[in-house]
Design a protein around this nucleic acid. Sequence first.
DNA 1: GTATCATATGACCAGTTGGTCATATGACCA
DNA 2: TGGTCATATGACCAACTGGTCATATGATAC
Lengths: 208, 208
Amino acid sequence: MPFPTFENLPEEKKKRIIDAAMDEFSENSYNAASLNRIVKAAGISKGSLYQYFADKRDLYFFLLDRIAQEKLKLVQKTARDASHASFFEVLGLVLQTALELARTKPRYALIANRMLDDRQVEEEVLQRYGSSSDSFFQPLLARAIQQGEVKGDLDIELVSKLLTACMLATGEYMIEKHGEYNEREAEKLFHSLFDLFENGLKRRGSGE
Amino acid sequence: MPFPTFENLPEEKKKRIIDAAMDEFSENSYNAASLNRIVKAAGISKGSLYQYFADKRDLYFFLLDRIAQEKLKLVQKTARDASHASFFEVLGLVLQTALELARTKPRYALIANRMLDDRQVEEEVLQRYGSSSDSFFQPLLARAIQQGEVKGDLDIELVSKLLTACMLATGEYMIEKHGEYNEREAEKLFHSLFDLFENGLKRRGSGE
DNA sequence: GTATCATATGACCAGTTGGTCATATGACCA
DNA sequence: TGGTCATATGACCAACTGGTCATATGATAC
């Protein structure tokens, strides 16, 4: 948690600091990210940073918490919208939500992808946010199997990890490929991803 | 490339050095990996390491090359065995080969997963090994679509990235979950993964 | 004026990094 | 024995790290 000193800062200065930190942590893993570069980019002194945050870790988790909160808000809204939908409908909505976030806030995705790169913070990250795949997809999958929507002979834990991995990969792909907003391409990506999970890659129908 | 000095070393000493380096780079990203720790673990002096390798990067890519070579050998054998098989048969064989490697040489998988963590080496990694997904799965997928085995309305590049991401995730899962050899569990994991790609998650048949 | 207070500063610290180099070792040969 | 050569060594270097702290600034209160 940042000190009150930080919250008292004029909004513009706060934004500058958050922005510089987001840039640094989205381009470097926790260890490789440099506080010196952050203070330089933010235009403040080293000492000031330590008036706002207890240490590097404090700053880092302040950013992660912001990202997690924003994501949570989106996902909760998605869940509310789909409270009575089938598994694949929920899945589709979640995929779309996640891809939308990856497109509009690419730095969030980059930082999140690097979360587990460094052992120095790995433990606390897992403890704080759990494996997001485990906590989110697993119960969804379990219920879908129970209700017969999803085939029953799957390793739930693995499949939920695969869902997460694919979402991350698609987000990365989207960032690197279509840096700028491109709704039609996003739609096509979403279709590839969703269809893979629902139906697999095999061509069906029309004899064969 | 290591200097001839390194190749002239007694096999046991070479192994000690490679082992220490594999350990360090499998537990830390390129930047975070420490040469001091490597020489300590290998029981040699700092100066000696620099008689064997030009610099940190040289040592790192020496390891990556070894891993890539070994993997290539396995995959080529797989490809040879399946030269006339269908797409899904080839896919199954490749998945099994990759999972087998992840189980027997977990450090290889860990190092490979960290390859793109640091921007300092990212560019050279991509240049040397290409995106492995692109170079391997893309032509396979393209041919499978042409021959009607795989549905045609997919983003080939994305799907090949998803295949790679899922293989990596499954490898990681296997390492963290069933550290020791466990053939039955491996078989089940393989089935989950393969079935996801062939048929998707949806339950089929028996009405509905 | 003066005292008080929160905030801002950057020189400074010990620790670590990747990398160097003068020197030492020791095997082989004359 | 003395000379040559490949190899081994670790003290040393500049650069950088996260983090500290005495000092400065400037607004507010009296």
